[in-house]
Nucleic acid binder design. Structure first.
Lengths: 200, 200
DNA sequence: TAGCTTCCTAAGCGCTTGCTTAGTCGCTGT
DNA sequence: ACAGCGACTAAGCAAGCGCTTAGGAAGCTA
């Protein structure tokens, strides 16, 4: 279930994918700076030098993981925001899916959300743009709902921050042993957000 | 304002306090593993070896910061939970103060919340206990309110997680340039939590 | 002045780090 | 058969790491 490697279906060759999967485990457990290139290569069943056949540096591995993770998250949010129904219905789907993703993919999500400071400046700029677009999608949906009278949101930017915090922070504490399961958690969080926004 | 050194009024001598303040800045900016003992000592205006006059290791500096930060946070939460008024009034104060603290002290809070994995096992056990007590205080307050009929909380543990996530995550994104100011943010978040819990 | 204590530094040790170099293995097409 | 190529390894280098050692400067007591 939720094999990290199906996050990158088009990464070739297979060894590069195994290296990325090993790096996800290591970065999520110990953090980027506490992980050595030897850790990653050994966990992927190769010698330390094998990493440099597929990636130019350790930082490039982090960037590949972070960028694809951000792209997935943004696509999910934008798809939900553009779905059917009124603003409340779409927000409910958005929060449920975003929360469930952070629970199911908590290792990748942890890297996406908590290893930003380890990115090189140029890499950071790329993911920062993806993050801005994610936040804007949530903000626009709140504003739309408030204008239509389905939300009683007093302060759109603060509400958007609060909603994203709720979802994102799941990656910090969620483990496979946590309860409830990712799907149920997503629905409960969606319910809490509906109440928070005063959805009628 | 909010000088980090007034967090440890009884740490002596003064040089130890300056080292801790320098370590807070460095750990919050770059993370524990990306910070060198030379970074800390130099920022405190001393030679690299001076750190070892006051602390037995770099890990001990982290522990001193993390433990005192956790103690402060727990004291704040327990004080608010034991204050005057009904469960809703106390929850409002708790969330407002906890959120404001994470914004005002965002550097210390970042270490408290995001450098747990860098603690040595024995040190982690100590702060894990403080964290359990913090979470329990919030959980008990929700349960009390639900029993008294002031909250319509469907799932106490999930609601507690959500509330703590909201407050804690502030440390991740808040900067001195962020808006609104810490006090206002605390009150808005308290309002959102009241709505989330269906406080009448 | 002498002796002790506290606080700090100059120098550097042993080790690990990210990454490189030179070369080997096995598969593919002709 | 054999050249060409992509994937991989053994060995190791230069740099930076946490931490130690030996000692000095300043202040206090007598």
């Amino acid at each position: 279930m939720t094999d990290p490697q199906d996050l990158w279906p088009d990464v070739r060759p297979d060894a590069a994918k195994r290296l990325m999967a090993a790096a996800v485990d290591a970065f999520a457990d110990r953090g980027f700076h506490a992980t050595t290139t030897r850790d990653i290569a050994t966990a992927a069943g190769m010698s330390p030098a094998a990493l440099y056949v597929h990636f130019p540096s350790k930082a490039a591995v982090l960037f590949a993981i972070s960028r694809t993770g951000h792209e997935r998250a943004l696509a999910m949010v934008e798809t939900a925001a553009a779905g059917p129904g009124d603003a409340a219905a779409r927000m409910r789907v958005l929060v449920a899916r975003f929360t469930t993703w952070h629970a199911t993919r908590h290792r990748v999500a942890r890297i996406v959300q908590y290893e930003l400071h380890a990115l090189r400046p140029a890499d950071f700029d790329v993911v920062a743009d993806l993050r801005r677009r994610t936040e804007r999608a949530v903000r626009d949906l709140i504003a739309e709902g408030a204008a239509a009278g389905v939300f009683t949101a007093p302060d759109t930017p603060t509400a958007a921050r609060a909603i994203l915090s709720l979802c994102v922070d799941v990656a910090r504490w969620y483990t496979p042993e946590s309860k409830p399961d990712p799907g149920t958690l997503g629905e409960r969080y969606a319910e809490l957000v509906m109440a928070m926004l005063g959805a009628r």
